[in-house]
Write a protein that binds this DNA or RNA. Structure first.
Length: 804
RNA sequence: GCGGGUGUGGCGGAAUUGGCAGACGCGCUAGAUUCAGGUUCUAGUGGGAAACUAUGCAGGUUCAAAUCCUGUCACCCGCACCA
């Protein structure tokens, strides 16, 4: 009898051996093909690891371990995305420096991850808060600044009243702060912005070049939100000015019966004197400014607005005079902040026109514009539109654009929903933006030789009530000299958002200790691009887009040699609490992976997380399910009691062995870990059914299971006296012909209903099978006295007899 | 509202170039081992006494449908007045 399976003991043992022997250390080796597997590096929160973390990590660890056994040189590394609000908030509350908090959290996370036996190359560990790391984050920012892709703009930003910090649009979820749930209002601030919109087209088009799941591509496309249309200038009556609008329906220009501008539109102040109801307008503006974008666009169902009395526009095609309104359903941040309203063919305009009694002119036939807006763009013939009459919508669009361009009052235009990236945070715990402001020279970059601009040590990192960064209180840090003229200058006190460090970390992994460049050309050329990147659905818009943007920029300036950073991107589902609800502290349903490791072992946790369900779908946690996986590993362990000699697969198990190798190999590639494990469980059941397993079979089995449960398999390998280490064995191959059983049982159906089964040889031809079928007693009885209409034989599957 | 997804035993889930629905695991039932067992082993386990009947619901195509088509309901996720 073998000793008892004791995961506590053997897991620690092997983790120590891996630390010492460093088998997962990745070095450039041109004799092998490289493979770069990547998981999202975590934010080391104070709560420690969550059971959600090991799901993607184990999945990619399986891929990494399998790839190594297939002969690849694998890069798989881990690090810490450690800047961020929770750490800073904790630091403020407990009066501990965020650096100390971070160190503590990282130590905890690292110990937890180590206890799970991942094959990370720990010598490549990185930390975004390390000055040696953020030096290069700052360096990339300066390159962006140099190329004019970073600029400061006065922006109405989302202001979280609780965190006292500006948020990007994307960080506002349902009108509240994504992090703290606090109320978000609009506030105007000077912000550093990154011109991601310059890359909108490339970010969109290059999605065709990469292997992301369709779901992910769709989300990226939606977020970029490309729409084609035209810009059209409307003359403002009695002035030389034009009001420019963006429209996707230039064909409906004859139906434009009024215009609407956003409350922030500059035209209002410009023609202050002409507007007769200026006070009323001011009042409306003030109310609108109190609302967040969310409230303006979400909560207010009923359209509101005020006419700009005294101002009129001229419809450029009909020459008719039309009124101009302001309304908060028009956003300054999209298009030109002004629209032409075609109530007959736009639902929002139609609603607005009905409410304020504005004229509705039908210009596309097909609906009843008194009842509802007719918005079909596929079909429909133009009417009431002079030179467009009788044309199809699509032709009319082209014709109108040509006409506008000829007259010089409009042009074809592509717009994107994607907006520039608000890159400033008024916070302490982030990368300082490496710029100084000089009265004479303006914004001047800190010279490369002086990077990194480090965070000063301070007593107090409380945010200021004015919305300035805590850094602004530190005089001797803020006051500096201008690198250009040597005069007095002040440092930028805003810091970068958390997205910054994670926008290029995958590049740093290729060469993490380089102090001459963010990574050497050699390392980048060898390791990049990332072959397989798995992460959460919650990061498939922002992080993925931002990091693709930075990478494309680095490509354009010649720092990397491929336009896309990730060849393949997949995503995992969430792990939920018992009752299918999100795990959260407030619900009290959080499972701590440490407890599972302590009670059952890391291999059990890993196996369970992979067995829990389809990888890309969310799945509820079940303590019973964990037990089942432990039971499986116990059974695997006890295989040592029934092992016999043999250096090739036994006759009775040969087919099953080849089937399992095939199933596991292919399922791992498709991230169908649950069915791969099921196949291995089934194989183990067979070993017990025949009450023996020979060494050849056991070797193969241990290799197959090793990526999932690396400790127990490695221990058994050693215990059984097999040569070398399991982790550098070769991945087994299957022989296709040997995956097929010689004899199979097929179903016999009468009129599509299974009546009996029959055993046939795989080589039997139809006639032979028919003979066997027809001599079956049950079938004989069933077709007695009936006439056979048709017989269908699907080789090796089914024999169906249609009778009357 | 738009986009994407999911509905299968008591539970997690398998099976989709249409071909024996319920693999694998949990739970449950019975028996064996055990001083004992939250251990292990053996057998059984969708419903129904049975004919039969079962993949959210209603139709359709087919020799054959969880899988294809039409309609419909429910839930989840993302986006949300983007002109």
């Amino acid at each position: 009898m073998a000793r008892e399976y004791n995961p506590k003991e053997i897991e620690k043992k092997w983790q120590d051996i891996w630390d010492k022997e460093e088998p997962f250390k990745a070095e450039i080796d041109r004799s092998k093909p490289k493979y770069y597997t990547l998981v999202e590096f975590p934010y080391p929160s104070g709560e420690g690891l969550h059971v959600g973390h090991p799901r993607p990590y184990t999945a990619m660890d399986i891929i990494a371990r399998k790839r190594r056994m297939e002969g690849y040189n694998v890069l798989f590394a881990m690090g810490w995305d450690a800047f961020g609000l929770p750490t800073e908030n904790y630091a403020i509350k407990n009066k501990i420096h965020p650096k100390i908090v971070t160190e503590k959290n990282v130590a905890r996370f690292k110990a937890q991850l180590k206890s799970l036996g991942y094959s990370f190359d720990w010598s490549r560990e990185i930390n975004t808060t390390d000055p040696e790391y953020y030096k290069w984050t700052q360096w990339i920012f300066l390159k962006l600044f140099e190329k004019g892709l970073a600029y400061k703009a006065e922006m109405p930003i989302n202001w979280c009243t609780q965190c006292k910090v500006g948020l990007a649009n994307e960080e506002v979820v349902n009108g509240v702060c994504e992090r703290c749930g606090g109320q978000v209002v609009r506030k105007v601030k000077k912000q550093w912005m990154l011109k991601i919109t310059d890359y909108a087209e490339k970010l969109l088009n290059d999605l065709d070049k990469v292997d992301y799941t369709e779901k992910i591509k769709t989300q990226q496309r939606n977020w970029i939100g490309r729409s084609e249309g035209a810009e059209v200038d409307f003359k403002i009556k009695g002035t030389d000015e034009c009001l420019r609008v963006f429209t996707t329906r230039p064909d409906t220009l004859f139906g434009a019966t009024y215009m609407v501008v956003s409350p922030e539109h500059p035209i209002i102040d410009k023609y202050k004197d002409k507007i007769k109801n200026y006070e009323e307008i001011q009042k409306y503006k003030q109310e609108a400014s109190k609302k967040s974008d969310f409230e303006r666009t979400e909560l207010v169902k009923e359209k509101t607005g005020v006419e700009l009395k005294g101002l009129k526009a001229i419809n450029p095609v009909s020459q008719k005079e039309i009124p101009i309104w302001i309304s908060d359903y028009v956003l300054m941040s999209y298009g030109t902040g002004a629209i032409m309203a075609v109530p007959a063919h736009d639902e929002r305009d139609w609603e607005f026109a009905k409410k304020f009694n504005l004229p509705i002119i039908e210009v596309v036939k097909g609906g009843n514009v008194n009842e509802a807006a007719f918005t079909d763009t596929e079909s429909g013939i133009l009417v009431n539109s002079d030179f467009l009459n009788g044309m199809e919508v699509s032709d009319a669009k082209k014709k109108m654009i040509a006409w506008l361009e000829e007259k010089g009052i409009g042009k074809k235009k592509v717009n994107y929903k994607l907006r520039d990236w608000v890159f400033s945070r008024q916070r302490y715990w982030g990368e300082p933006i490496p710029l100084v402001y000089c009265e004479k020279c303006g914004w001047v970059p800190v010279p490369e030789s002086e990077l990194p601009v480090t965070l000063p040590d301070v007593e107090n990192y409380m945010p200021t009530d004015t919305g300035e960064s805590p850094l602004s209180n530190i005089k001797d840090w803020v006051e500096t000299t201008c690198p250009k003229c040597g005069g007095k200058a002040t440092r930028e006190t805003d810091t970068m958002p958390q997205w910054a460090g994670s926008s290029w970390y995958f590049l740093r992994f290729t060469d993490p200790h380089n102090n001459k460049a963010f990574a050497s050309k050699e390392a980048i050329d060898y390791w990049m691009p990332v072959d397989w990147y798995n992460g959460g659905m919650e990061h498939t818009t922002l992080h993925l887009l931002y990091s693709r943007f930075w990478h494309k920029f680095l490509y354009d300036i010649g720092c990397v040699s491929m336009p896309e950073p990730y060849v393949k991107r997949t995503s995992h589902g969430m792990i939920l609490g018992k009752n299918n609800e999100k795990m959260s502290k407030s619900r009290g349903n959080v499972i701590n992976p440490d407890d599972i490791v302590n009670e059952f072992g890391a291999d059990t946790l890993r196996t369970y997380e992979m067995f829990i369900g389809a990888f890309d779908q969310s799945a509820p946690w079940s303590q019973q399910g964990v037990k089942g996986c432990r039971r499986f590993l116990d059974r695997v362990w006890r295989l040592m009691d029934i092992v016999v000699d043999g250096d090739s697969y036994s006759n009775e198990l040969e087919t099953k062995m080849h089937q399992t190798i095939k199933k596991v190999s292919l399922d791992f590639e498709q991230m169908k870990f649950n069915t791969a494990i099921a196949a291995m469980m089934s194989l183990v059941n067979d070993f017990y059914a025949v009450q023996k397993i020979n060494k050849a079979e056991l070797k193969t089995f241990l290799i197959l299971l090793n990526p999932v449960a690396p400790h127990i398999t490695e221990e058994m390998w050693q215990e059984l006296g097999f040569e070398g280490r399991l982790y550098n064995q070769k991945w087994p191959k299957w022989i296709e012909e040997k995956t097929v059983e010689n004899t199979v049982e097929i179903a016999i159906q009468i009129n599509g209903k299974v009546r009996s089964t029959v055993s046939i040889s795989i080589d039997d031809d139809k006639a032979t099978v028919k003979e066997k079928v027809m001599s079956n007693e049950v079938i004989k009885k069933n077709i007695e006295g009936k006439s056979i209409v048709k017989e269908i034989y699907i080789p090796g599957k089914i024999y169906n007899i249609v009778v009357k």
